[in-house]
Design a protein around this nucleic acid. Structure first.
Lengths: 190, 190
DNA sequence: GTCTATAATTCGATAGAC
DNA sequence: GTCTATCGAATTATAGAC
């Protein structure tokens, strides 16, 4: 029997604060350099409480990186605008909180992070991509190409912080990158 | 007075073996999980020898990540082929050894790695990009866009190992991605 | 629920014998 | 040049008092 979802625990606020601090720490430091101690200090609690609530560092990361991209239904917008909509959405999502940066930083050096990214692409991006792809057999490859450009842009701008990628405005980035994503999604296969 | 470059030390072979093992270790594990002990064991020497030769873990990384991309002179090839040539060159370069994977894995979590990548883009990619860009003022932005797509592709294929990105052939990848790089380099600014 | 104390590892780095 | 021995610090994780 599962726990009734209507039974809030008194510790829910603390648990949420731990997750938020964990996302910030993983996003800023990566998996290895982020520490239970630092996360606990940011929340103002004892490190042992983090262990009590989440069991281990890896389970804490799993909980902190569980996210819904809230991708728009690409079938409901004009076909020639899907690239622009998708790039704009990801830029907003990346700047909105630390989940995606945490996923990227952790995914590069920790297996659990890479698996989380695989899962998010497969369960959230692939379904919306299917709505606009000309050939169902191409969907995984097209989704992978879109992912490569979106992740590469985020890497350059938010993680490696290449000066030109940081200085470009949101509008400039969309104007340059949206046609790439548009082509990966809807152009005839080369 | 600098040391004569014609004076090979007896330890040069060992030093080279250390650098190679370091590249493999940094590429496979990232900066934090790569250890002096593991690198030394791969070479068959004592860990203290690594410290004696390179002084510290960070200086070892700096030495191991010093690389020449050997980028082709884009001014010497047909203008409409620069995208294809560049993508093919980077794919070959990425599969040729472990330097670029090491740089990418380390750059995401360690400052020295990110700075090395900045330096390589600025000193090696920007100059060859300049030869084909229509407007000199756009060169840094265009180089950053090319970098975002190249790094994103390498991230998906060689680091995160998304199944579709791994399974696509070299020719498929070039056919899809070369037009992106071509546009970033030579198309009119949007 | 909260905290103290500490176990058990592991790491980079150093000192010094040979 | 090469190795043994070890320091000092940091980490995750656990046991148990209150």
């Amino acid at each position: 029997m599962t726990q009734a979802p209507s039974a809030p625990r008194r510790s829910d606020a603390t648990r949420a604060a731990i997750l938020q601090a964990a996302r910030e720490s993983f996003a800023a430091e990566g998996y290895e350099r982020a520490t239970i101690r630092t996360i606990a200090r940011a929340v103002g609690i004892d490190p042992s409480m983090v262990m009590r609530y989440y069991g281990s560092k890896e389970r804490l990361f799993i909980a902190a990186s569980d996210t819904d991209l809230h991708l728009p239904d690409l079938g409901a917008i004009p076909a020639q605008e899907v690239g622009e909509v998708l790039v704009a959405h990801f830029l907003d999502r990346w700047e909105g909180d630390d989940v995606l940066t945490a996923l990227l930083r952790v995914g590069v050096t920790h297996q659990a992070g890479a698996e989380r990214m695989h899962e998010i692409v497969r369960r959230q991006l692939v379904p919306v991509v299917t709505a606009v792809c000309p050939d169902p057999a191409d969907v995984p490859r097209r989704a992978a190409l879109v992912t490569s450009q979106i992740l590469g842009l985020a890497l350059a701008r938010f993680v490696l912080r290449f000066p030109p990628a940081v200085e470009m405005t949101r509008e400039e980035l969309i104007a340059w990158v949206a046609p790439t994503v548009q082509r990966y999604l809807t152009a005839a296969a080369p």
